Amino acid sequence: LELTLRVGDKTWHFKDVDEEFVRHLEELLKRGAHEREIEEIIREWLR
């Protein structure tokens, strides 16, 4: 999967994204996660 995600003024483009990561992001967005929380999840995933 490829994913382009825009949060606030930042845009990330990922290739070979894990479906579990996408589901986790979807859940965060559904519950109205704040920009900082989403950025933290992305940084963790990139490690």
Rank of each mutant, 00 (worst) to 15 (best):
L1E: 14
L1V: 06
L1D: 14
L1F: 15
L1Y: 14
L1P: 15
E2D: 15
E2L: 04
E2W: 12
E2P: 02
E2C: 05
E2Q: 09
E2T: 06
E2V: 04
L3G: 02
L3M: 07
L3K: 05
L3N: 03
L3E: 01
L3P: 02
T4N: 08
T4E: 14
T4F: 06
T4C: 15
L5K: 01
L5D: 00
L5H: 01
L5W: 01
L5F: 12
L5G: 00
R6W: 02
R6A: 10
R6Y: 03
R6Q: 15
R6E: 11
V7H: 02
V7W: 05
V7L: 11
V7S: 02
V7R: 00
V7G: 00
V7P: 00
V7C: 10
G8T: 00
G8N: 05
G8K: 01
G8F: 02
G8I: 01
D9Y: 01
D9C: 08
D9Q: 05
D9F: 01
K10H: 13
K10S: 06
K10P: 00
K10T: 13
K10I: 15
K10Y: 09
K10V: 14
K10R: 08
K10D: 04
K10L: 07
K10Q: 08
T11H: 15
T11M: 10
T11C: 12
T11Q: 05
T11E: 13
T11F: 07
T11A: 04
W12H: 04
W12Q: 00
W12S: 00
W12M: 03
W12R: 00
W12L: 03
H13N: 04
H13C: 03
H13R: 05
H13I: 10
H13L: 05
H13A: 03
H13D: 02
F14Y: 01
F14E: 00
F14K: 00
F14S: 00
F14A: 00
F14L: 15
K15E: 07
K15C: 07
K15I: 12
K15D: 06
K15V: 10
D16I: 10
D16A: 15
D16R: 08
D16G: 11
V17Q: 11
V17N: 08
V17F: 02
V17G: 15
V17D: 10
V17C: 05
V17I: 09
D18G: 05
D18P: 11
D18N: 09
D18Q: 06
D18L: 02
D18M: 02
D18S: 13
E19D: 06
E19P: 12
E19A: 15
E19F: 15
E19T: 10
E19V: 15
E20N: 13
E20W: 14
E20K: 14
E20V: 13
E20D: 13
F21A: 04
F21W: 07
F21P: 00
F21V: 03
F21I: 04
V22L: 03
V22S: 01
V22M: 05
V22D: 01
V22C: 02
V22R: 03
R23D: 05
R23P: 01
R23G: 07
R23E: 05
R23S: 07
R23H: 12
R23L: 09
R23I: 07
R23K: 13
H24N: 11
H24K: 13
H24S: 10
H24C: 04
H24A: 10
H24P: 01
H24L: 10
H24I: 12
H24M: 13
L25C: 08
L25M: 09
L25P: 00
L25V: 09
L25E: 00
L25H: 00
L25F: 02
E26R: 12
E26S: 10
E26D: 08
E26F: 12
E26W: 09
E26N: 10
E27Q: 11
E27H: 11
E27T: 12
E27R: 08
E27F: 09
L28D: 03
L28S: 06
L28E: 06
L28F: 05
L28W: 05
L28K: 10
L29W: 04
L29C: 03
L29G: 04
L29I: 15
L29H: 04
L29T: 07
L29R: 03
L29Y: 05
L29P: 01
L29E: 03
L29F: 07
L29A: 09
L29V: 14
K30I: 09
K30R: 14
K30V: 11
K30E: 08
K30A: 12
K30F: 11
K30T: 11
R31V: 09
R31W: 08
R31P: 02
R31K: 13
R31N: 13
G32K: 05
G32E: 05
A33F: 09
A33R: 07
A33T: 12
H34F: 04
H34Y: 07
H34P: 14
H34Q: 14
H34S: 14
H34M: 10
H34L: 09
E35V: 14
E35H: 11
E35L: 11
E35M: 07
E35D: 10
E35G: 05
E35W: 13
E35P: 14
R36K: 13
R36H: 14
R36N: 14
R36W: 14
E37M: 09
E37D: 13
E37S: 05
E37C: 10
E37F: 09
E37I: 11
E37T: 07
E37L: 08
I38A: 02
I38E: 01
I38H: 01
I38R: 02
I38D: 01
I38V: 12
I38M: 06
I38G: 01
E39D: 10
E39M: 09
E39P: 01
E39C: 06
E39K: 03
E39Q: 05
E40Y: 09
E40S: 10
I41F: 15
I41V: 14
I41M: 11
I41E: 07
I41Q: 08
I41C: 04
I41Y: 15
I41W: 14
I42H: 06
I42N: 01
I42S: 01
I42R: 00
R43L: 15
R43Q: 14
R43K: 15
R43S: 10
R43H: 15
E44M: 07
E44A: 11
E44T: 06
E44V: 05
E44K: 09
E44N: 11
E44F: 06
E44H: 10
W45M: 08
W45N: 06
W45D: 02
W45S: 06
W45P: 01
L46Y: 08
L46T: 06
L46C: 04
L46D: 07
L46Q: 11
L46G: 06
L46A: 07
R47E: 12
R47N: 13
R47M: 11
R47Q: 12
R47I: 12
R47K: 13
R47V: 14
R47W: 07
R47P: 09
R47F: 11
